[in-house]
Structures are given as C-alpha cells and as structure tokens.
C-alpha cells in the first residue's frame, strides 16, 4: 500500500516506512540511542530528498526523546541546570546549523557534507566506544579487578576554566564554558544531520564533563528534546522541508520497535551491549565511507534549484 508524502512529494510503501521506523526503533531501544544516525541515511537511500529526510528526522526524534525524557523525569534522573546550559548552547548551534544547511543546499554540496560528517563522526565515536568496551570486556573476563580507575582525578584544562558553577544533581563544580560549547557543537551538527546527537553527547558528558552515569541519559534526552523541537520549527519555517505524514508514520513504527528493543536490551549484559553499539556505529561509518570512495553508478546528479 502506497502512501503519498505531501512535502517529500513522492509516494512510498507505508509498510516499508513502518518497518524502517520499527527496525531503527528496535535498535535504539536496545542500545538507548535515538537512532537518527541510522534513519537519515536510510531515508535518503529509499528516495526521500536529503533536505526532507534531515528535517523530518528531527521531528521524529522529538517524539522518541519526549517519551524517554518523561520516563527519566519521573525517576528524577535529569540534571535540569546542566540540561538548560546545554540547551542554551544547543539553541544557538541549531540556528547556525539550519542556516549552514540552507547554504550548502544551494551550493549542491549538502549530500557530500552529510556523508563526510557522518563518516568522520561515526568512525571516531565508534572507534572510541569499541576500544572502551573491549577493555571493559577484557577486564570482566580476565578478572583484573584490582586496577582502580582514576584513584585521584588529574587537574585538567577543563578544571582551570573560569565561570565555575555548582551542579547539585550531578555533584559537579565546573565552568559553564564546556557545557555551552558542547551544546553548541552538537546542536549545529544535529540541525545539519537530522540527528539528536545523543551518541556524541553521551560520551562527551561522561568523559569530558565527568557526569555520573545515572543522570547522563536523562539530561541528554532533555536537551535533545528541546534542540530538535527548535530545529524542526526552524526547518519548517525556513525551508518548508518537514513532512508531517512521514514523521508520524516513522513515529508509530518507532514507538512499537523501541518497546520491544528496550525489553530485549534489559536482558543483555551492558558490556556486550556497548560493544554491539560500537560495532553498529562503526559499520554504518564504514559503509558510508565506502560509498564516498567507490565509483558512483551515475557520474551526474540533478539538483533541483527552482522552488516549486
């Protein structure tokens, strides 16, 4: 059964869309990530114009992060103060991102930029995660329990920055500059790539800000919710590229898939799960890198310029 997408202006099998939503939702439920980094390339692959895919993906992430953030809110696992700081940076970043996106689109280089950014991000993050989780696995199986991690924290560059503020919920006393900067960069990337940015934000919060693990996911979802809401609004207002029919179809599939994924995820051990996520992230990165370097099937490409 075909469904016509009024903004993307093509008709696509509705079960394909629901299946994509459920599949990506399933994976994101298992691993606890938004899955935008998987969904956007897939949408482009099935023929959705990249501009529409990116903007609509942001709209879908709102739904998944809203339901996640709500659950964490009830458990009081959100550092609101940190979330707001990340959000201020993120909002500025998202405004810049949407403008950059429009500019690159008129140059005809948006696809290249999106692919390059994905390759760089996915291989760096995936690689770091893999190293980290393989180390954790080795410790687990070799039983090297005696090496205490960071017996005394070293004084780092971050600790020397001015404008320090106390974050009660996270038990931190750090400068406001790193959260603002992190929020800004992730916000800009999120707007240009149509992702929530959770898979960048989570490691950054843990390794750079050293936030405790129990508030990291909730706080990240909290800021993703607002940044993607802003991105969706800006994309809709400036580029008219948000397809609500596509977004709602993906949301329905995603919600169902995520529930099954989350149930399976609870039964799997954490280290294996993280190794799995690292491999998945790396796999998508390698695939995109391969596509960039391999001979294109058509040496020409049409870029629609006239606004209909």
């Amino acid at each position: 059964m075909q469904i016509y997408l009024p903004i993307a202006e093509i008709s696509i099998n509705i079960f394909l869309l629901l299946g994509l939503g459920a599949g990506v939702g399933f994976l994101s439920g298992i691993f606890g990530v938004g899955g935008g980094f998987l969904m956007t390339p897939l949408l482009i692959f099935i023929g959705i114009p990249p501009a529409v895919a990116v903007s609509t993906q942001a709209n879908q992430v709102i739904a998944s992060s809203a339901s996640g953030a709500l659950t964490h809110w009830r458990r009081q696992a959100i550092d609101i103060k940190m979330g707001l700081l990340l959000l201020i940076g993120g909002s500025l970043g998202s405004v810049l991102g949407v403008f950059l996106f429009t500019w690159l689109r008129t140059l005809g280089q948006i696809d290249l930029f999106v692919s390059l950014a994905y390759v760089a991000l996915l291989s760096i993050i995936g690689g770091l995660m893999l190293v980290e989780s393989v180390n954790a696995l080795r410790k687990k199986f070799l039983g090297k329990g005696d090496d205490k991690a960071n017996p005394r924290r070293k004084r780092r560059l971050i600790d020397r920055l001015p404008f320090k503020v106390r974050f009660a919920r996270s038990g931190l006393y750090i400068s406001v500059i790193p959260p603002l900067f992190m929020g800004f960069s992730v916000g800009a990337l999120a707007a240009m790539l149509g992702i929530g940015g959770g898979f960048i934000m989570l490691p950054a919060m843990i390794y750079i800000l050293r936030m405790p693990a129990n508030v990291v996911v909730g706080t990240s979802l909290f800021q993703i919710l607002f940044v993607t809401a802003l991105t969706t609004y800006l994309q809709a207002a400036q580029n008219q590229t948000v397809d609500i029919v596509l977004a709602l179809t993906l949301i329905v599939g995603g919600v169902i898939g995520a529930q099954f994924g989350a149930r399976l995820g609870q039964r799997l051990p954490a280290e294996e799960l993280r190794t799995g996520l690292a491999l998945l992230v790396l796999g998508v990165g390698v695939k995109l890198a391969w596509d960039l370097g391999s001979e294109p099937s058509d040496m020409f490409e049409i870029i629609q310029t006239g606004v209909k």
């Binding site: 709209n59 879908q60 709102i62 739904a63 998944s64 992060s65 809203a66 339901s67 996640g68 709500l70 659950t71 919710l225 809401a229 969706t232 609004y233 800006l234 994309q235 809709a236 207002a237 400036q238 008219q240 948000v242 609500i244 977004a247 709602l248 949301i251 329905v252 919600v255 995520a258």
Partner: peptide
C-alpha cells in the same frame, strides 16, 4: 503558514512521545 505548521509538527511529535510513554 510555515511558522504555525512548524509549531504543529513539534506539538504533534511531543504528544505522540507522551502518549507512547
């Protein structure tokens, strides 16, 4: 009405997420 449309998209998605939760 791009501004209104954007707001509606955001609200619908938030509602869907809340309903799912």
């Amino acid at each position: 009405h791009p501004h209104l449309y954007g707001l509606i998209c955001v609200l619908l998605a938030v509602f869907a997420g809340w309903a799912a939760a």
